[in-house]
Simulated assay, not measured.
Amino acid sequence: MAFFNEYTKELIATGILFILLILLRIISTKLVRRYAKSSHSIEHRTNLVIKYIHLFINILVVTALIIIWGVQTKDIFIALSSITTVVGVAMFAQWSILSNITSGIILFFSFPFKIGDVIKIHDKDFPIEAEIEDIGAFHVYLKTNDGEKIIYPNNLLLQKGISIMKNHFDDKEFVD
Rank of each mutant, 00 (worst) to 15 (best):
Y141F: 10
K124E: 14
S163T: 12
D134E: 15
E43W: 10
N145V: 12
H139N: 15
S81E: 02
V62Y: 13
I162N: 09
I121Y: 01
S99K: 11
S41R: 14
S38G: 03
D170W: 09
F138T: 09
I132Y: 00
V71L: 15
F92N: 13
S163Q: 10
D117V: 05
N100S: 01
Y152H: 05
S39Y: 13
F4A: 12
I19H: 03
K114N: 09
T46K: 03
I106Q: 11
Y141T: 08
F77C: 05
D170N: 12
I106E: 07
V62R: 05
V49P: 01
L65V: 07
T102S: 08
V32N: 04
L48T: 13
L48W: 14
I66F: 14
N58K: 03
L158T: 07
V87T: 03
K124C: 02
I67C: 04
S82H: 04
T8F: 03
R34M: 09
F126I: 08
E173P: 00
S96R: 11
I22K: 07
H40D: 13
S38T: 10
I68S: 00
L60G: 10
Q72P: 12
S81R: 08
T8Y: 05
E131H: 05
Y152D: 12
F108Q: 00
E6Y: 00
N154I: 00
F77T: 07
W95M: 07
I97C: 00
L48F: 15
I22H: 02
L20Q: 03
D146P: 00
I19T: 13
I57T: 08
L60N: 03
T46H: 06
D134H: 11
F138D: 05
N5Q: 09
S38F: 11
V87L: 03
I50E: 06
K74F: 15
A137F: 05
D146H: 08
I19V: 15
A137E: 11
L158P: 10
I162V: 13
L107P: 05
L158G: 09
F3K: 02
I151A: 12
H168T: 10
F113P: 02
I121E: 00
S41M: 12
L21I: 04
H44W: 13
T84Y: 01
T46E: 14
Y35E: 07
V89Q: 03
F108N: 00
A36Q: 02
T14Y: 04
D117H: 14
L60M: 12
Y52N: 07
K114L: 04
G88W: 00
S96D: 11
S38N: 13
F169L: 12
M165P: 04
